[in-house]
Design a protein around this nucleic acid. Structure first.
Lengths: 347, 347
DNA sequence: TTGATTTGTTGGAACGTTCCATTTAATAGG
DNA sequence: CCTATTAAATGGAACGTTCCAACAAATCAA
């Protein structure tokens, strides 16, 4: 039913008794058209139920108003927060972000990128899936399409990156744990095929060294970056001879998993074992106990990425500087009481 | 830099020494082409860094392989879970879903829908923003574009809906609370401009009536469908003369807010006040206490929606039947231990 | 040999826009 | 009254694909 053969600009022209060029001008809001004519045209547009065909338009002007946002894990609230930040700035620039999920699957990522490019997006904001091959973005770069990475960076690539200061964040968190008196520390979750992993782990290691924790009192357990991964990490750690008493987790999801596993063993997070997360997703302040975490300002990073992208599009360049976002440690309850509450920040 | 004037099918033809028609055939994987020719062409494609222009193609065949998914709140994990379900089925059908967020803003929704249509999507899966005007989808229907609603339905619309059995879910949850011995019940969160709200509230009311709770022992507090909304609802309720001892919440986010607010007042969710959520997002099983909630099988609903959409596209119809998904109550700890515990004395 | 058939390949006309160059109409200057 | 100037509207040639009708070469039937 319905499905008449789709109105075009010519149908409108006929309906309004003008030429297609006039209609086109009206559609673009040109002031070369007499207001009354424009009105007549707009009415016709409404009448025939016209929908603009951007594909056809792009054929001539190649100036799409959509950018693609490719995310490795949509179910991580972190990315949703970031997306919201981006949308804020894109909206006011009249451009629409389409989001696509790769579910951490490089093959899927390839498909999604292909589709987005074919669709003629003006730019790409990507958080690459784990295991992305180095050459995966060559075609996009060759096409001269603006692209920025968020959160993750690829080993050799020259593509600009917007990411938090992972090194410093990990350093701060580790120092906090040591300041609490812990002497046997662990780093939980993540895997070494991620550059971020090395950054965070590096911060952890340096802080340990600088603050006098011997390397042999330090434990690193790789694992999935999810609650499940966190649970597994804790199990592994507690099975060791001289188990750690505190852990910095690769991200909040892992931290939640760790706390969960502690509870299941009858241990109290904070009192019996200190845990710090990374990302400071909204849930962090709602957990029991509330989670001390490295806040990375996800929405802010999203906004920043969007701005960088806009600038790249405007100046039609494919280069831009990296941007390392400030981080700060939000101290809550998951590392035990830190003095009488009162001037705490855990809101 | 870079940005050579973009290779087209003709450049490939020249490079490979064949005609553009041949290239086109190769791109479509036609078996009318001699394998060695195809190989030659594919090599040329690689060499010139060609990217297919789907806009141009659609000009002729109008057969896009993307569908748009428009959701009202990307930060609600519920939708992420649903999106993942959809993606699963779409992927195997070779179609790519693009997700766009409306942030519960009808104006934004309008823009997003417009953009998606202009882009020539093959169909639309929409969870309408609150306050969507009745006519918002007229143009889409006029265009004969397949569209299905998820989760929410519009008052008068004939657009097919995929949603959980809200009425029954609320009924079950309410019955559970009453079975626990509660006699003064509240319904927290949501607002009456949502059809879902009336469905859930309806289930709540009917259960109360059927199980002998007088209407005056029943409290309904509208509010935002977020943690913040939940907090506000609880404050309001506890300020009443004869406060309720249990609440069914519009969704899990509200329930989390309520539990939070209880804690802040020194009350223990489950023991001092029972709360039930709706949606059963993953977090529900990780909270302290774990949240009793109505599981709606979000991923399953996503899959179902995707299937319906595929069928609509194939049979090029714009009609389909509603689908009401089964629900079931997942009992956890937020309503207290299983014995008919002490009620009464709140606040 | 000749015509018919099959197998690969190809030119050209769409598709719905934009935009340049032009035309037409109206206004002003002399 | 004629010519410049300005304002408003227009025709037509792109843009990068698909697909139909047509073609050439090779194979087959007689």
């Amino acid at each position: 039913m319905a499905s008449r053969p789709k109105a075009t600009i010519l149908d409108i022209a006929r309906e309004a008794g003008v030429s297609k060029s006039t209609v086109s001008l009206v559609l673009q809001g040109s002031d070369l058209i007499r207001p009354e004519t424009a009105l007549k045209v707009r009415k016709a547009i409404e009448d025939v139920g016209y929908v603009y065909n951007r594909g056809a338009a792009n054929l001539r002007k190649a100036h799409s108003n959509v950018i693609g946002m490719v995310i490795n894990d949509l179910t991580n609230p972190f990315f949703a927060e970031m997306a919201v930040g981006m949308e804020r700035v894109f909206q006011s620039a009249g451009i629409v972000p389409f989001i696509a999920n790769t579910a951490e699957n490089p093959v899927r990522q390839e498909e999604v990128l292909k589709s987005l490019m074919e669709q003629g997006v003006a730019g790409l904001i990507v958080s690459p899936a784990r295991g992305t091959t180095p050459g995966a973005f060559r075609r996009i770069e060759m096409a001269g399409l603006p692209i920025v990475f968020t959160m993750r960076r690829l080993p050799e690539s020259r593509i600009p990156v917007i990411a938090p200061d992972n090194h410093r964040g990990a350093w701060l968190a580790t120092a906090h744990l040591i300041g609490k008196g812990h002497r046997r520390l662990a780093f939980f979750g993540g895997s070494s095929d991620l550059v971020v992993y090395h950054e965070r782990l590096g911060g952890f290691r340096e802080a340990c060294e600088a603050l006098g924790i011997a390397k042999r009192d330090t434990l690193v357990v790789e694992g999935e970056t999810s609650r499940k991964g966190g649970i597994a990490c804790l199990e592994t750690a507690l099975a060791m001879a001289d188990p750690p008493t505190a852990a910095l987790c690769f991200n909040d999801a892992v931290a939640f998993g760790v706390m969960l596993a502690l509870r299941k063993r009858g241990l109290e997070p904070g009192a019996d074992f200190a845990v710090v997360g990374f990302d400071d997703v909204i849930e962090a302040q709602h957990y029991m106990p509330t989670l001390t975490s490295v806040a990375v300002d996800s929405a802010g990073l999203g906004e920043r990425a969007a701005h960088v992208m806009l600038r790249m599009i405007q100046s039609r360049t494919t280069r831009a500087e990296d941007h390392i976002g400030a981080v700060n440690l939000v101290v809550r309850d998951s590392c035990g009481p830190h003095r009488p509450a009162g001037m705490g920040d855990a809101a």
